[in-house]
Amino acid sequence: MQRFVYSLFLLTLFLVTGIATVAVAQEGGALASLSVGSSADYYHNLMAVITGNWQEYGQMFTFLQSEWFWKVFLVIITVVPAVFFVHYMIIGAKHFDHDGPQIYFFSLFARIVHFIAAISFSLLVITGLLVIFGSFFGGGTFIRLARYTHLVSAIVFVLPCVLMFFMWLREMLPQLHDISWMFIVGGYLSKKKTPVPAAKFNAGQKMYFWFAIFGGGVMAFTGYVIWGMGADIETVRLFAIIHNVLGMGIVAFYLTHVYMSVFAIAGSLESMRTGYKPKEEVDILHSLYKYEL
């Protein structure tokens, strides 16, 4: 009898503790699920899911695009030409004797490649600026067309870009005399015709070359991703920032190149058409270039 009561007591004890354990476990589970349900936590998670990491690049892109990009571009396309205008007024163009002996400077192949690059690159810069100042032109079909042209020009530009890279790689490698060229800014700050240290290409042309090749590569890649939204939104935002910032440098270099070839050195544009440069010009501006008459 005593044994029976003892067994019954143990059985009851087991049952009670068992049920209590299960109940506590369930209660705990229910409470655990409730504790994540606080409104503040929920909205915190929700905003992270909906907006992603907007604060990182989204906010930065919004701020830069709305406040800075167009202003900086406006400064570049007004101040750079203004500086050149002052230069043209004070120092003026360099004139060389075009009737004297001529030196064959650019092969036909180089001229064709450069011509394709010039057209497509100019279109890239112009259409890019049209999109940036789209509101000035009222948007619509005209700016949409500029956007399409931007893409087509970019695709066209890739080919001469690659060809120019291999064609001029050797002559475009930096050399020691480029440093002294930079110290005298290529002799463009004086009217005197003293020979400046430069071989086939001067330091300015070299900077433009490397900027256009590598910058162009980055521009092409970021532009391609932006065009097709071919990455997650964070990356696209970052690429849009890079594309615009790099574009500022490229526009500045482009304006410089145009000023040099069209205005600063009279008749220099002709050499890209005929391939010949006056001997006097080569002796002064590319004094280290070895040629045969």
Binding site: I50, T51, G58, F61, Y148, G228
Partner: peptide
């Protein structure tokens, strides 16, 4: 929509992914 050029900047700026772009006809442009 007659002024919009489909550049997608609004989509990059929007925290909620609200702007949407149908496929255009030219070079897969938005």
């Amino acid at each position: 929509k007659k002024t919009c050029i489909g550049c997608g900047y609004c989509f990059m700026a929007c925290p909620f992914g609200a702007p949407q772009f149908p496929k255009g006809n030219v070079f897969g442009a938005r």
